[in-house]
Design a protein around this nucleic acid. Structure first.
Lengths: 242, 242
DNA sequence: TTGACTTATATGTCTAGACATATAATCGTA
DNA sequence: TACGATTATATGTCTAGACATATAAGTCAA
């Protein structure tokens, strides 16, 4: 069974090489620390040029599956459990994906000069005006999450006149701000009176909290806190293999 | 100001090209949907070969910053808030990173034939034996998290004889199982009697729950539930730019 | 207007070389 | 033995081409 001459060679060669190496790593045949064959060895094995092999290995290195060291070779890396891809879907998408009807309701919307608390929450020294929004998302008319958001108007002036009574601020921002970076912090609290009422749960019930802080090239855009009933909501993060 | 002839050309050319394009996208100069220059245009702009430009753009495509379409060109992608990198550190690393002393304590360890509940938790149809471990991690002698773990002995036979009284099962597995995939589920609960006692918190206090299910090439290895005091622990997930 | 066919073109992959550079290994010397 | 200089080598980057292929766009007929 020659490696280079396979009947069904639909995938391109460099992808085949990448998949071959990846498979050996994932099955444990090549354990962490193992030195995988040198590029020139793979070149003779697959009968191709070095650039082709190089492309395959470079992608594996980018995916942190192997580590490449000059003069020494390429080595299988130790698995890193500490990094996982967390998928945080848009609220409407998340709810409709569950096959449930999406509902949105604006609770309050205030335009004000930034208070000290606002500035701290947005991580800015001095801000002009902000919009503070409180709203609720529901699934089949059952409260799904409450959202408490602050938008920095010096970064997003259009938000001052946007109509958030029909469109959630999250999706409005998604369509009005070109590209962002974000940091999410996840924690747990128990529901206080106000939260319990908004989510229609008991006071003292567990809630999952997501604080998302969003910016674009060092400019703060928005800070949002999402509160979910903790026993009904789950976040799923999957490591490796997307 | 010529682009190609820069005084401090420490980074390689393809990295410069990649950084240049990335910067224009991140600053919003090239908004989502914008068609970035064709490869041959960048070739003339930077005075290099197409392979060099291709490598830069391919990496941006791999990072989901741009989308490449044959015959049409390359386009800036819409930001995808729903995907973020969640860092879940090894317990010891996490605690020592906080500058606190790490402590570990085995609460119980049982070897048994898999019950129906065990099989469901591990997601297997029929399993032979399992090890059930309960332990506690502490920071400066203050309870930090409790761990409740199940290991499938048909996948990891060595775990039957491993000494978990000194080494946490997490790090033992990390060193005895070559490579794994994992799925994390995050939720919130309130502490029941047993949990409250183990974590030295009040009954009814919020707890953050991480359920991690680990496998290797379709073989289940372990399922673990970690319980953290919800008001003191935070998970941070950062989108883009890791 | 619609559908089928053709053409132009941007990306996808690959080659057979090249030189640069970091560093593991070796060798020589104090 | 320990340290410093030298050498060998695997990876890193790059070139100037090539052909493959998907598809946007244009062409023409029903």
């Amino acid at each position: 069974m020659s490696l280079a001459t396979d009947a069904a060679d639909k995938p391109t060669l460099y992808k085949r090489i990448r998949a071959d190496v990846e498979k050996r790593i994932l099955t444990g045949e090549w354990p962490p620390g193992y030195r995988i064959p040198f590029e020139h060895e793979l070149v003779t094995r697959y009968g191709c040029s070095r650039m082709t092999v190089n492309k395959a290995l470079s992608e594996l290195a980018q995916a942190d599956l192997i580590e490449r060291r000059r003069r020494a070779g390429s080595f299988v890396r130790r698995p890193q459990h500490q990094s996982a891809v967390l998928k945080i879907a848009d609220m409407r998408a998340e709810i409709t994906a569950l096959g449930r009807g999406y509902g949105y309701e604006l609770i309050s919307r205030k335009l004000r000069a930034a208070t000290a608390a606002d500035r701290e929450r947005l991580g800015v020294k001095k801000a002009g005006k902000v919009v503070a929004i409180s709203c609720r998302h529901s699934a089949d008319n059952v409260p799904f999450a409450v959202e408490d958001r602050l938008i920095d108007l010096s970064s997003v002036p259009d938000a001052a006149t946007a109509d958030f009574s029909r469109e959630p601020p999250g999706s409005w921002l998604l369509h009005h701000v070109p590209w962002t970076e974000a940091e999410h912090t996840i924690s747990a609290i128990v529901a206080d009176d106000r939260t319990a009422e908004a989510l229609d749960i008991a006071v003292g019930a567990p809630c999952l909290v997501i604080d998302r802080y969003t910016w674009r090239s060092a400019r703060t855009i928005t800070a949002v806190r999402l509160l979910y009933p903790g026993d009904s909501h789950r976040l799923v993060a999957r490591f490796k293999g997307g």
